[in-house]
Design a protein around this nucleic acid. Structure first.
Length: 382
DNA sequence: TTTGAGCGG
């Protein structure tokens, strides 16, 4: 039970109409555990735990595919935030189209929440304003971190929630409720505010012999400092940058204005406002996105999946075996730790080539075993 | 104080 072959080639995925997405799962949750948990709500087709195709490590989410939409709806309404392995899971309708999620429309952010308010309480409080797609109190090992997200299915519902709940006292704490902002937007806000108030200064491009005392000597000229530190690696070697925290914003600003671009021991110092965490994260994210886009445009292709690979097949061999069907942009064998089963991906430059490879190679013996070859997920339009 | 994660071999 639990797993199975749900989607024979060419059949329509009917079960999607009665499919629930289950998020925030403990990594040890199995398909059988999901099955046992949801079977009381009605007959199931199958459950799935999603895993990284390469490492096989669980991705923390899965699916419960009911036979009847009404049972799925009942489960959604009554079982959301139930525990498996002591961890509350989050239920949503399975919605493969990610445009609404990505857009952030209807999503609100809540902070200054009392620790006693959990997922269920939050859901109950906010369901008065509209249909909730997803709702979550952010937690760590000590429980609620005091902030949360509620994603409504419409902007109007989100606006109603903000209008009615922002500034309201909940369990004696006044909550802030506002539109969700993406990191870039938040970072811009924080930057604007911090420019007028910062006391922490970032310094780089000094010599290896710079230490805390020397740095303090240079920077103390502009005001009293709270802390001065050259950042070092585990071996004690300077990383070439440091921080100076002043007691006042005026001193920090003066230091930046005066020391930035100055030569010290033949090196031109960089001195600027130290960024907040959110700003650095946003910057990293932007850089990552750019890399990802570049990667995507560099290795386009129509993927096919090859299961049941013999241990003797490596990337080279895989490419060689499939090269007669067309031009291959990528051929990779994913090694499953502790299992003898090999899984591979080959990307062709066209759909026709990929289909031909599937038709001709599926069931063919390579090495000692018959291959299972299927079309992969199309990630792009062409 | 605190602006996630994220949809199927």
């Amino acid at each position: 039970m639990g797993s199975g072959e749900p989607n024979p080639a060419g059949k329509k995925k009917k079960y999607l109409k009665a499919a629930l997405y289950v998020g925030d799962l403990d990594p040890d949750v199995t398909e059988d555990m999901l099955y046992k948990k949801f079977r009381p709500a009605g007959p199931l087709r199958f459950t799935r735990i999603c895993r990284d195709p390469v490492t096989r490590s669980p991705l923390g989410y899965g699916y419960v595919n009911f036979r009847f939409p009404a049972d799925a709806e009942w489960a959604l309404n009554t079982m959301n935030f139930d525990l498996i392995n002591g961890k509350p899971f989050r239920l949503m309708w399975s919605q493969p189209d990610d445009r609404l999620r990505k857009s952030g429309v209807g999503n609100i952010f809540i902070k200054n929440l009392d620790k006693s308010i959990d997922n269920r309480a939050l859901f109950y409080l906010f369901s008065a304003f509209g249909n909730i797609l997803s709702c979550k109190v952010v937690c760590d090992d000590n429980g609620s971190k005091g902030y949360a997200y509620v994603h409504f299915d419409s902007l109007a519902a989100a606006n109603r929630a903000i209008w009615h709940m922002n500034g309201v006292r909940l369990n004696n704490r006044q909550v802030y409720v506002g539109r969700f902002k993406f990191p870039e937007e938040r970072a811009a806000e924080v930057r604007t505010r911090d420019r007028a108030t910062f006391t922490n200064v970032f310094v780089k491009n000094f010599g290896d012999d710079m230490d805390d005392e020397k740095l303090k000597e240079i920077f103390s000229e502009y005001g009293s400092t709270e802390s001065v530190k050259v950042i070092r690696d585990a071996s004690g070697k300077s990383k070439g940058f440091g921080f100076v925290r002043y007691e006042t914003h005026e001193a920090a600003q003066k230091a930046v204005l005066d020391l930035h671009g100055k030569s010290i021991d033949g090196k031109v110092l960089y001195v600027g406002r130290a960024q907040k965490k959110i700003e650095r994260l946003a910057e990293l994210r932007r850089r990552f996105e750019r890399l990802r886009l570049k990667e995507k445009s560099r290795a386009p292709g129509v993927p096919i999946y090859i299961k049941n690979l013999d241990e003797t097949i490596d990337d080279e061999k895989l490419k060689e075996e499939f090269s007669s069907f067309g031009s291959i942009s990528r051929a990779k064998v994913m090694v499953e730790v502790g299992q003898g089963k090999g899984f591979g991906v080959v990307c062709f430059s066209s759909f026709e080539e990929a289909t031909k490879a599937v038709d001709e190679m599926n069931g063919r013996i390579m090495g000692s075993k018959p291959l299972h070859v299927t079309l992969g997920q199309a990630r792009r339009r062409w």
